[in-house]
């Protein structure tokens, strides 16, 4: 009963094109689940369905046992779901610290406070989170001018600020260098295991996927075509043909780091 996310027979089509077709999978506490597949396979649609941005045509999504039917993204968030975006979405007119403070304000339902100065609220909590993801030295810089890798870390801090039980990460390491990617994912794995958060992420970097995922699901043309441990997916001929190509799949990391 430690399932943070259960997806059953999920389908969604856009103008006749079946973007997600009868997809089912689940995710447990403290686990990292990678969703891979060719571009246009329906990964982003899947994410937006879980997140509440889109409504499914059919099928159910349960987060921490609750059916999310009809919920808006902000309601899904309130269930304890953090999200990072493929193209980073931060408040560019605010500093790094203020971005994280915003989440605390929202968590504590103080966004309509008209009395206090924002600068004084939840400062220490936000700072602590920045320290956790390693961008505390940048706290006073505007998010709009941050280096990309740091921005991704800020996104992680924002996603973690309401102590989520489920983390949705859409291409968390896109646009980063190899070493940076691995570092960010190591950090993420450590945090999610410490706080026993379930993570669903998409990724095109196989070093990241095979280095950190506990399980992998593969989508193609909206359908789930393979599911299993990294070992199992690596050996799958069909996946190799439609996705890996000539790419030499790296060996799996020994888990339990």
């Amino acid at each position: 009963m430690a399932k943070v996310l259960e997806v059953n027979h999920l389908s969604k089509s856009f103008g006749g094109v079946q973007a997600v077709n009868d997809v089912s999978f689940h995710l447990e506490k403290g686990q990292l689940l990678a969703m891979i597949g060719p571009n246009g396979a329906g990964k982003s649609t899947c994410f937006n369905l879980i997140n509440g941005q889109l409504r499914p045509d059919s099928g159910t999504i349960r987060i921490l046992g609750k059916d999310t039917r009809g919920m808006k993204p902000r309601h899904v968030w309130a269930l304890g779901v953090g999200r990072t975006f493929q193209i980073t979405a931060t408040f560019t007119s605010m500093t790094v610290l203020e971005n994280v403070q915003m989440v605390f304000l929202s968590t504590h339902r103080r966004i309509r406070n008209v009395w206090h100065k924002t600068a004084d609220l939840y400062r220490d909590e936000a700072m602590e989170l920045l320290r956790l993801v390693g961008v505390e030295s940048q706290w006073n810089r505007p998010c709009g001018i941050l280096a990309y890798g740091d921005l991704k870390r800020v996104e992680l801090a924002i996603a973690l600020a309401n102590r989520p039980k489920l983390l949705l990460m859409d291409e968390p390491t896109a646009g980063m260098g190899t070493k940076e990617r691995l570092k960010l994912m190591e950090l993420t794995s450590r945090i999610v295991r410490d706080q026993s958060i379930g993570v669903l992420f998409t990724e095109h970097d196989m070093d990241v996927v095979f280095g950190h995922a506990d399980r992998i699901i593969v989508l193609s043309y909206g359908r789930l075509i393979a599911e299993g441990t990294p070992e199992e997916v690596r050996g799958n001929k069909k996946v190799k043909e439609i996705y890996f190509g000539t790419y030499a799949v790296p060996p799996c990391a020994t888990s339990g780091v």
Partner: peptide, 23 residues
């Protein structure tokens, strides 16, 4: 400079993110 004003700017800066943090 209060949370009300900050939230206003949050909504302007990124609707997507504001929605994703429960606003």
């Amino acid at each position: 400079f209060t949370p009300f004003g900050y939230t206003m700017r949050a909504c302007r800066d990124s609707r997507l993110r504001a929605d994703a943090i429960g606003i």
